[in-house]
Every structure is written in structure tokens, then in C-alpha cells.
Amino acid sequence: MPEHVSILQWAGVAVLALGAAAWAVGLSRALRRGRFEAVAQMPGPVALPALPRQRQAAPDLESVELTPAERDAFAGLVRQFAEGH
């Protein structure tokens, strides 16, 4: 303990630190309690009239067979990107 710091100063620091910790705990509990109460009071999901209805299932995957020339061109692009990186 430094010589120029009195016991009262150390006690003041300790009291302030305990007060800050108690305030943080109390604030977090109050916010958590308020959030749970707000969620409990919320109605179910509301549909927005301006947005189109969402699909329930994902669309089917699509694939296209490439010609040999297209496969070669794609392989050339991949090589160019690999060399550039």
C-alpha cells in the first residue's frame, strides 16, 4: 500500500467499487426482468401487408449440364483466379 494514500481513501475506493458492482447487478436484473415481461405481453407474429407472403419451403435446386466447351472455359477461369490469388 502506498504511503501517501490514507486508509479512508482506500475505504472510499472500496465503497465506490462495491456500489458500482451492486448498481451493475441491479441494472442487469431490472433489464432482464423488463425484457421477459415485454416478451410475455407481445402478441404472436403479425403479417405485414406491404410484403409478399413468404414460402414455407425452400425452392428446388436447379442444375444445368454444361457442354465440354463451357466446362473448359470454366476450368480456365478457375485457373486464372487461382494464379491471381
Rank of each mutant, 00 (worst) to 15 (best):
A20M: 12
A20P: 05
A20I: 08
A20Y: 03
A20N: 04
A20C: 11
A20S: 11
A20E: 02
A21D: 10
A21I: 13
A22L: 03
W23G: 15
W23I: 15
W23M: 14
W23F: 14
W23P: 01
A24D: 14
A24N: 15
A24K: 11
A24V: 14
A24R: 13
A24W: 15
A24S: 14
A24G: 12
V25N: 13
V25F: 07
V25E: 10
V25Q: 05
V25R: 09
G26H: 02
G26A: 14
G26M: 13
L27M: 14
L27C: 13
L27Q: 14
S28E: 07
S28K: 12
S28P: 14
R29T: 10
R29G: 08
R29W: 15
R29M: 11
R29P: 12
R29N: 02
A30S: 12
A30G: 00
A30V: 02
A30T: 09
L31H: 06
L31N: 01
L31C: 09
L31R: 11
L31I: 06
L31D: 00
R32I: 06
R32P: 11
R32D: 10
R32T: 13
R32N: 07
R32H: 11
R33G: 09
R33F: 02
R33E: 12
R33K: 04
R33A: 06
G34R: 06
G34S: 04
R35Y: 06
F36R: 00
F36Q: 11
E37F: 08
E37V: 09
E37T: 05
E37H: 09
E37C: 02
E37P: 12
E37M: 01
E37D: 13
A38R: 00
A38W: 08
A38L: 06
V39N: 08
V39F: 06
V39Y: 00
V39T: 04
V39G: 03
V39A: 09
V39D: 00
V39Q: 09
V39S: 00
A40N: 05
A40D: 04
A40L: 05
A40W: 00
A40K: 01
A40V: 10
A40G: 03
A40H: 06
A40R: 10
Q41C: 10
Q41P: 10
Q41F: 13
Q41R: 11
Q41S: 08
M42S: 08
M42N: 11
M42G: 05
P43S: 13
P43H: 10
P43M: 00
P43G: 07
P43E: 12
G44I: 11
G44T: 07
G44S: 02
G44K: 12
G44D: 03
G44H: 08
P45N: 12
P45L: 09
P45F: 02
P45C: 01
P45K: 01
V46I: 09
V46M: 02
A47L: 14
A47Y: 13
L48C: 09
L48S: 11
L48M: 07
L48T: 11
L48K: 04
L48R: 01
L48I: 03
P49F: 01
P49E: 10
A50Y: 15
A50M: 01
A50L: 15
A50C: 14
A50D: 13
L51G: 09
P52I: 03
P52T: 03
P52C: 02
P52L: 03
P52S: 01
P52H: 05
R53G: 12
R53S: 14
